[in-house]
Amino acid sequence: MLSRLAENLYWHGRYLERAEDLARLINVNANLNLDLPAGLSAGWEPLVRITGSADLYRELYEEVSERQVVRFLLTDERNSGSLKATLEFARENLRSARDLLPREVWEQMNSLYLKGNEQLSGNLGKRRRHEYLRELILDCQQVAGTLLGTMSQDHAYDFILIGRYLERADMTTRILDVRGYDLLPDASEELTPYESIQWMSVLKSLTAYQMYRRHVRLRVSGNDVLEFLLRDSQFPRALMFCLRAVEALLTDMPGDDKQALRTITRLQRNLQEATLTGLRGKALSGLMDQLQIELAEAHDAIRQSWFPSE
């Protein structure tokens, strides 16, 4: 397949995943803020940090409020990482490569985008916002499901998935980075009820709560959450799961350049060897930073191996 289209599909996978993750982040944060007393609530600022747009935000806005952060994340045209822009990028990248995919995928992407344009054009009330974002998550899942159910698992399919899993891996580390820093400045044995709620919200940001309860079977604690979200090999949003998926996809890729594969296996090794128990605050943040750098290296290696050189 053409390198240009491989790149388009890879980015389509990344952007659609990003849109879904962003929608979930906003809904979970809104929910969390309802549960926490004013003093403990970190408010909306963490979302700006998770999306890596703190500098831009400070340039554009003087204060941090729900209304402003949500506007910034959903529709602000000056923010190229807004949900609206993300959906547009997801669609534009699919457009040229659409003939490689089942027709329904383009139709779904197209209606998802048009619905976004419609919903995000006016001022969204909180309830409508929640409802729209919930639907968006389902719509993104529908695209993933259609691909899984109707598309040959060829290189075109593989590049979408590589994009999706790398984006997801990146988002998981970002969420843990920011949330982990805010949470539990001191590693204490006893969780206060509010701390427990905060860890639950971390799980929920990644739709991991239910699966965590089923598979970990312990009450929600920081160490176990970290272990589950970073090293679980069965939960599809856990970092290790994503890395293994990317590794399997890369193994089938054509060419002699194994740099991308090497980067991903090294990442798994580092993750496996990291000490997670009691990892909090700066140390946790440091590990997440390191993982993010390695994910970026994996992206670069993929780009160099398979995408157009210019």
């Binding site: 397949m1 053409l2 390198s3 240009r4 491989a6 290189h155 590049f159 890729m253 054509p254 060419g255 398979w306 157009p308 050189s309």
Partner: peptide, 8 residues
């Protein structure tokens, strides 16, 4: 003339 593909 060549085209740039993922296999080179």
């Amino acid at each position: 003339v060549f085209m740039r593909t993922v296999a080179g």
